[in-house]
Simulated assay, not measured.
Amino acid sequence: MSKVILITGASRGFGKIWTEAFLKRGDKVAATVRNLESLTDLKAQYGDQLLPIQLDVNNREASFAEVNEVAAHFGRIDVLINNAGYGLFGAVEETSEIEARNQMETNFFGVLWLSQAVLPIMRVQQSGHIIQVSSFLGLVTLPVLGIYNASKFAVEGLSETLASEVKDFGIHVTLVEPNGYTTDWAGASAAQTTSIDAYNPLKQGFQEAASTPGIFGDPQATAAPILDLVDNSNPPLRVLFGKFAYTAVTQAYKERLNAFEAWKTVSEAAHGN
């Protein structure tokens, strides 16, 4: 049976690759973009299977209206994939108020609004799957991506809580946590702070590390895994996408557990009698 998928940020990168993968196998897809022309090719090929929607996920009222339109159009929503987001590159000290707020508006509040909007529909259905495209940087951090890291940590906390709240309604929540991929996430889609010279050596080291061969994954390789995830009747709360993500996160968690154990006596003393 075909599924009805609502996916945000479908104009490029993961969003467009996954949209096409769903359409190819016969699913119905409502795809949100800021520019409808970015879906002209898929609309011409797949016709009524695809419902293109112009949406700024920062707009809560519009997000609710468009989710309801999708449910009315297709009769249900089986899967929501919150994919819209972008990277803000720059040291924490460099980041302006507007840059920080814009990052959180899209990467966190956009996820919150779409999740809230789809929940009444999925509760009535007594089924549904909300997939949040987080990042391995919602579990570990890298320098000069502080606000982006923070936005993904926020998505992680929100989604883990949400999963515990909606499981009795037959609704699953999954956090997809990719490492870097050869999309334009770090290029045309990214934002940059105004540089402070003192951080230039740090940024240079970051760029050199990012040029390591094989560190970035192939975005096309994520199509089959996302289909498998959508089809799974018992999906995980979290799934890492990419070899680097797996290595970085598992190593960081081992170090955290060791540090917790080393400071166990202090933790117990802080509890009191």
Rank of each mutant, 00 (worst) to 15 (best):
K3F: 05
V4H: 12
T8P: 00
F14A: 00
F14M: 00
I17Y: 00
T19F: 00
A21Y: 00
L23G: 04
A30M: 06
T32H: 01
T32S: 11
T32Q: 02
N35K: 14
E37M: 07
S38C: 02
L39G: 05
L39P: 06
D41E: 15
D41N: 09
K43L: 13
Q45W: 05
G47R: 11
Q49A: 14
L50C: 12
L51R: 04
P52G: 03
P52I: 02
I53A: 02
I53L: 10
D56S: 05
V57G: 00
N58S: 13
E61M: 06
A62G: 07
A62R: 07
A62Y: 02
A65M: 03
N68L: 15
A72G: 12
H73S: 07
F74Q: 09
D78T: 08
V79P: 05
L80W: 03
N82D: 07
Y86S: 10
V92E: 09
V92I: 15
T95P: 04
T95N: 05
S96Q: 10
S96I: 12
I98K: 15
N102T: 15
N102E: 14
Q103R: 07
N107Q: 09
N107L: 05
N107E: 10
F108K: 07
F109W: 15
G110E: 05
L112T: 02
W113K: 02
L114K: 05
M122Q: 14
M122C: 05
R123A: 07
V124G: 06
S127C: 08
G128M: 11
I130S: 06
V133W: 02
S134W: 03
S135M: 04
S135A: 06
F136S: 06
L137A: 09
V140T: 02
T141A: 13
L142M: 12
P143K: 04
V144Q: 12
L145A: 14
G146T: 03
Y148N: 11
N149T: 03
F153G: 14
F153V: 11
A154Q: 12
V155N: 12
E160G: 09
A163R: 15
E165D: 01
E165M: 01
V166A: 08
D168L: 13
D168N: 15
D168C: 08
G170S: 15
G170Y: 10
G170L: 09
I171N: 08
V173T: 02
L175K: 12
L175R: 09
L175T: 10
L175H: 07
N179Y: 06
G180L: 13
T182W: 09
G187C: 11
S189E: 08
A191Y: 12
T193N: 07
T193W: 07
S195K: 05
S195A: 07
D197C: 01
D197R: 03
N200K: 13
L202N: 02
G205E: 10
E208Q: 10
A209T: 09
A210H: 14
S211I: 08
T212V: 08
G214V: 04
D218F: 01
A224F: 07
A224K: 14
I226E: 05
L227K: 03
L229K: 01
D231Q: 05
P236A: 08
V239E: 09
L240W: 08
K243D: 14
F244E: 13
A245M: 02
T250P: 00
A252T: 03
E255N: 08
N258E: 13
N258T: 11
A259H: 04
F260G: 02
E261D: 08
S267W: 04
S267P: 03
N273F: 13
N273Q: 12
